[in-house]
Every structure is written in C-alpha cells, then in structure tokens.
Design a protein around this nucleic acid. Structure first.
Lengths: 128, 128
DNA sequence: TCGATATTTTGACCATTATCAAAATATGGA
DNA sequence: TCCATATTTTGATAATGGTCAAAATATCGA
C-alpha cells in the first residue's frame, strides 16, 4: 500500500458518521445493509449519508451493489487488512536492542497478510 | 475505545506528513527520534512538524520526552493496537451464515488485545 | 549571563470538509 | 405510463485544517 492510499483510507474513517457506518457494515458481514437502513440506524439524512458512503467507497473500504430498488453496501475487508499491515510495517526496524515493543502489532500484521487475495476492485472509478 | 477516541486517532494519521512521521517512529522503536531529525527526514519546516506531532500526541499515538536540548518522540504502540481492535470489533456479528469473511481481521484483533497493559499515559494534558 | 541551537507558539491566509435543502435519477408496481 | 419509494447530485454555507513567517521559549556551552 502507498502512503497516499493509506491516508485516503484513514481519512475515510476519520469522521464520526463514517466510522459508525463502517462499523455497522463490518458487523453486518458480506450481506451488507441498504443505504436507507444505515441512514436510519445512524439518524442522519439520506443525502448526507450518501456523501459519506461515496467517500468510503472511493477509498476502497466499502463496496456497493444494486439489489432491486435498494443499494446495498458492504465492507471490503481486504482493504482494511492491507491498511493494518501498512500501519505496522517494519515495526522497530531501527531499534538498537531487539525489543518486544510492538510484538502485538507484528502478530496482527502477520495475521492480516494471511488474508486470501480478493478479486480486483472496481468501485466508483469516476474521479473524486 | 470510544467512537470519538477512534476518530481522533484516525484523523491524527490521515495526513501525509503525519502518517510518514508516525511510520518513522514506529520503525525507530522505543528509542524514538528527535523532532528535528524527523523534520529533516521528511523535509518539512520545524514549525509545521511541531504542529503535526502535537496533534498525534494529543490523540495518544505518540509520546515525547525531553532529553537535553532535544525533544524525543516515540510511538505509543498500545494506542495503535487498541485502534486495530476497535476497527474489527464484532466483525460479521449480524451475518446469517457463519462466514470466514473477516477471519484475518479477527486474528489481528485477538493478537492485538494480547498486548500487555501500558502504564497510564499523561501526554499533553493541555486542552486542544 | 550571553549567544547559539532546538522546538513550540501565534496569527494570518487559503483550501478542504460536513451539512442542509432542493432537484435529479433510478427502480418497481399499479 | 404514472406514481411512490430509494438514493444520489448539486449548490450554498459554515466550520475545520494545513502551511508559512515571525516571535517566543527552553537548553546547553562558553
């Protein structure tokens, strides 16, 4: 993952409504949730939520599919695991003593990179 | 971790200079780096970097200590592991079928929460 | 104490972001 | 086709964020 990609993903999560929506989707699993149900659960206007969902989709954290007259959003787990790996990359590489400083972070990273490769994402190809 | 705390931590990382500085500190380990060395490595003005370091310290992601005439910054790993755990909390709780959808995220979380408890942080108690 | 180095703070400026109201688009059913 | 429901887009506005120059603070060594 590149610096700018990681910044985009972090920025997409760094807002209360968006983080709450993302967590809702993480908990909902692959089945996902319709946009309207998320707006309802979070008590935000559909227009505002749509703005936020678009932002997260653009950052690759969630994806959408049309299902009848609903648009279903779901978490894109691979992007999150890639972000986790990036955040702890080369942890303590420059430490003089061999430290246990970030053992948990390392363990998390190793678990994350075991994730099976995901199919190519083609979400919101339009420019921001 | 609470929603607002997580948003603050994510926002603290959602900026190119800050994320680059944070990664530098993660790689430097507990020994840390002087503010000036970070500014030098990233080619940003000391004043601007100071602004960014303060932001990350306030979010609990890094800590500082005075050492002679230098201020040494280092990563606060516990905050990051707490953030990782929060982001994958209750993953797929609502999925109808038992899915392997976020197994890697779950593994990462479990590794993260094994982190030893850190001493109480008292960084930059002043208001933002 | 004085000067040099290291870092932080302040104030100003410009760019980006979040929200809302209203209009536009898309889908399904009568 | 027409209407009702679901979602997105647009345009405006207020708030927040990032950078810079200059001044302020802190520490060390002479």
């Amino acid at each position: 993952m590149e610096l700018k990609t990681a910044v985009a993903a972090l920025a997409a999560l760094a807002q209360e409504t968006r983080l709450a929506a993302y967590r809702l989707l993480v908990q909902a699993g692959p089945a996902g949730l319709a946009a309207g149900r998320i707006a309802e659960a979070l008590a935000v206007s559909p227009a505002t939520l749509s703005f936020h969902l678009k932002e997260m989709a653009y950052a690759g954290l969630i994806q959408s599919r049309q299902e009848g007259r609903w648009v279903i959003y779901s978490a894109h787990y691979a992007q999150m695991t890639a972000l986790l790996a990036y955040l702890s990359e080369n942890c303590c590489a420059d430490a003089t003593e061999a430290p246990a400083c970030c053992a948990p972070v390392q363990a998390a990273t190793e678990a994350a990179v075991m994730a099976p490769p995901s199919e190519a994402r083609k979400i919101h190809p339009a420019a921001h």
